[in-house]
Computed example of a mutant assay.
Amino acid sequence: MRHGARHPHIVRHLEAARIDRQQAEAIADVLHQQEVGALAELATKADLRELRAELKGDMASLRGKFMELRAEMEARFAKIETRFDKADAASGPWSSG
């Protein structure tokens, strides 16, 4: 079955624009194929729910990794501060003069 027959309104509009029936049906076929292809690419509500759950999990994982990095950086900065404090204590008061 030709898709042009499934979309007689498209064929009628094209014929009204002085396109012969065979060409109008061919155009309707192409439009139908494009429509089917586009519909196949649409996400369903279930697809979106699944994606949302996946993204929430990814975000939670990233939050955890950022917290680990933050704790690691704070520990490193604390060590550096301790080293500076020890260096200051060992060098004594700054001399002026």
Rank of each mutant, 00 (worst) to 15 (best):
R21D: 13
D29Q: 05
A78P: 06
R52I: 12
S91C: 06
F66A: 07
H9V: 14
S95V: 09
H13I: 11
E41K: 13
R21N: 05
A38S: 07
Q34V: 06
E81K: 14
D20K: 02
A71H: 12
D47V: 11
M67H: 10
E68N: 02
S91Q: 11
G37P: 00
V11Q: 03
A5D: 15
G64N: 10
Q22C: 00
A46R: 07
L39F: 04
H3M: 00
D85N: 14
R52A: 14
K56H: 09
G4H: 04
R12K: 15
V30K: 11
G92H: 05
A78V: 04
R52Y: 12
R12A: 15
H3I: 01
M59N: 06
H9C: 04
D88S: 06
I80W: 02
A16W: 07
R12F: 13
A38W: 05
K79D: 15
R52K: 08
M59S: 05
R52D: 14
F84H: 05
K79R: 14
A87E: 09
M59D: 03
E41W: 04
R83G: 13
A43Q: 13
S96N: 05
F77N: 06
A71D: 15
A89L: 06
Q33F: 13
P8T: 09
M73G: 03
A24I: 03
A28F: 06
E54Y: 07
K86V: 12
L42D: 03
F84Q: 06
I80V: 15
R70I: 08
K56Q: 11
R18P: 01
G97K: 05
D85H: 11
D85S: 14
A78S: 15
A38C: 01
V36L: 06
Q34P: 00
R49G: 02
K79S: 14
V30D: 03
D20L: 00
A26I: 04
Q33H: 13
G37R: 12
G57D: 09
S91E: 12
Q33Y: 04
A5V: 14
R49Y: 10
A75L: 02
A28S: 06
R63L: 08
M67Q: 11
R49C: 03
Q33L: 11
A53G: 09
K86G: 07
Q23Y: 01
E25V: 05
H13D: 13
L42R: 15
H13Y: 06
R21H: 15
G57Q: 12
K65P: 02
L69N: 09
E35T: 00
K56N: 07
L55F: 10
I27C: 02
L69H: 06
L51C: 04
A43D: 10
S91H: 04
A78Y: 04
D85L: 14
D47E: 04
A89F: 08
S61A: 09
L48W: 05
A40V: 12
L39S: 01
L14G: 03
A89H: 08
A40D: 15
A16L: 13
R2K: 09
L51F: 09
S95A: 10
A38F: 08
